[in-house]
Amino acid sequence: MTSSAQTPAGLLADALRGDPGRPLITFYDDATGERVELSVATFGNWVAKTANLLQGDLGAEPGDRLALLLPAHWQTAVWVLAGFSAGVVVMPGGDPADAELVVSGPDTLEAARACRGERVALALRPLGGRFPQPPAGFADYAVEVPSQGDRFVPYTPVAPDAPVLRLPGEDEALTAAGVADRARESAAALGLTTGSRLLSGPAFDTWDGLAAGLLAPLAADASVVLCRHLDRLPADDLAKREAAERVTHTV
């Protein structure tokens, strides 16, 4: 059943009230062979911990801009929803110099240094592993997040008309209600219904990539098989994955 929630955090809350044990994100990295499956409950727990890190240790306030320099990855999805939950303006692929906070993968650390505010680095290693040597000037996400609380309550509730998402090339930020509405529209356009399994490879720095990789499946009570480095997977192996994961739709 498609969620009628007015905010992205509401979409996740509806999913948690429905069937929290069902898969939400199945992640593959075809450069490392990693496979990770997150249920709605497990994803929600990561989102809560990350939102607590944002609001607490990092001091993020509603309206602050959060640049995400991250690839298609399950941890990227976590950061997107955590940002929405805390009321910051999430900027996938955004300019770190134009942000109060930045979250970077290991390949974009130099670009991320343009942010004068808080900087967080993700090693993007299997099982959410930490950096062998933490990068100077960055908090290591894998070190900081485990101790955060498992429940998140924003200091200021995120209103439907609050700006929460700014994508590259777009002058104005989408509101929380705008994101939820577009997620439902994308789910319908993709033909997603309850139980659908969508295989997606694009990065989250366009609406289509963000919708396919997270928001549309979340809105439609569906799930996503999220693939990084999908171009390294032979066509025959892709067909086998689609069969093994019971994929119903592909982007």
Rank of each mutant, 00 (worst) to 15 (best):
G63F: 03
Q133K: 13
R116L: 13
S104Y: 03
M91K: 08
R119K: 15
A86Y: 00
E61N: 13
A142M: 04
L214P: 07
S3G: 04
S196R: 09
P135D: 01
L210F: 04
L199Y: 05
F27C: 02
P106L: 03
L122M: 15
V247W: 02
P8S: 10
A121N: 03
L109D: 04
G137N: 13
R119G: 01
T2A: 08
A67Y: 02
A112T: 08
L226T: 02
C115A: 11
R228Q: 11
T175P: 10
A188C: 07
R151F: 15
P62V: 09
T248F: 08
D14L: 04
L53W: 04
A77M: 08
D150V: 15
D171I: 11
G137W: 10
G83S: 12
L38R: 04
A48W: 03
A159Q: 15
E118G: 12
A177Q: 14
L12P: 10
R116K: 15
S85N: 11
P8T: 08
S85F: 04
A180L: 05
V145F: 05
P96Y: 05
A235Y: 07
A82G: 03
S200A: 15
T2R: 14
D19Y: 09
S4P: 02
P71N: 00
V103A: 12
A51Q: 01
G94I: 07
L38A: 04
A99D: 03
P8A: 09
T193K: 07
